[in-house]
Design a protein around this nucleic acid. Sequence first.
DNA 1: GTAAAAACTTGCACTGCGTCCAGTTTTCGG
DNA 2: CCGAAAACTGGACGCAGTGCAAGTTTTTAC
Lengths: 197, 197
Amino acid sequence: MVDAVQGLRERKKLAAWRTIRSTALRLIGERGFDAVSVEDIAREAGVSRTTFFSYFPSKEAVLFDLDPVEVQRWQEMLDQVPDDVPLWTAMTDVALALAASLADRLPLQKRLTAQSPDVCSAAQGTCDTFYPDLHEWLTRRSPDADRVHAALVLNTAVAAVATAIEAWDVDDPFEDFLQILRDCLRWAGAGLAHPVG
Amino acid sequence: MVDAVQGLRERKKLAAWRTIRSTALRLIGERGFDAVSVEDIAREAGVSRTTFFSYFPSKEAVLFDLDPVEVQRWQEMLDQVPDDVPLWTAMTDVALALAASLADRLPLQKRLTAQSPDVCSAAQGTCDTFYPDLHEWLTRRSPDADRVHAALVLNTAVAAVATAIEAWDVDDPFEDFLQILRDCLRWAGAGLAHPVG
DNA sequence: GTAAAAACTTGCACTGCGTCCAGTTTTCGG
DNA sequence: CCGAAAACTGGACGCAGTGCAAGTTTTTAC
């Protein structure tokens, strides 16, 4: 499923990625996003500022980017969805799976986006990681005539996820979040189940 | 309707706002977003860099912020929507009115968001101007139990607008854009017409 | 095992955004 | 006309993000 052990270089890279990420989450969790500089994170993680930016394209990305292994597992999931599943159903499944993988970071992310508007707008960019892939995936699975429909399916799903994140109380169990998300997807998707409305 | 002539101070402020805005749109339209600095815009508009930031909170904002007069007209429109209009219907009307006021800038915005990803993520922030107001407006108009529903209505409408902007061809007449938007709103809203799905 | 090649890290310098502040000019109310 | 309030200015600062020429480590080929 996941490549066991590649070369030393690959393993070191992944380790570095995770060290930087966890260091950043810890520091930012302690002091807040604006009170921690990239310099701070790099120093604490034992790398140079330059190296930080070779792993993450921006300071915000360290909060929202996915672990490479997660990305890979997630790509494989996309490939395994049968072609005959209706677009909205497929999208729903993917959204729920994706949401489930956010379990550990979601509380911190909610807290931070509430604090600083800088992070808040970047939070929408969370989707930036998936958006192009998903867009391509959906477009490939739908006839040319329904390209608008495919885009609408994606954006509506994003809206449902955003709403669920917004509505979920951090103190409630994570399962509640998934339930809210299921409801949102069902409500928002009622009109999208069939390609031509 | 709109205050005719307030003090000289107010008029000068509005004039300065519009000068900065139009200068920025011209320069950015000519050279591209990244090739124009705030310094350039300020110099060309005849103000200092500091003053630029007293009118616009960021470089991106100069592309997406609404003319103060438009904002005011738009607030009045919100107040005039009767309370007995269903939530989704009201939202649809507002979205369409809002979209109509984008007529002149949309082509430039589409061109720029396609060029640079910096602008693209900022484009989502367009809604930042309206989002809090609309959120408050919708929440006020719906019972506490339906707060999730209200948020979903808003986010879904945003999704519809985003999709329509994405799907519209800049070379087609603006009316086509509104038609696509109407379709998107209808499809996406099919499940939202009734508070409890 | 060793040497060349490729990939990664590092420090440094640079541009540009956004903020702060102290001093000046402009507008408003009386 | 005058004092207060608001707006503009220049300069300095911190930090994000990029480019580059080193130096170091891993891989590859022999």
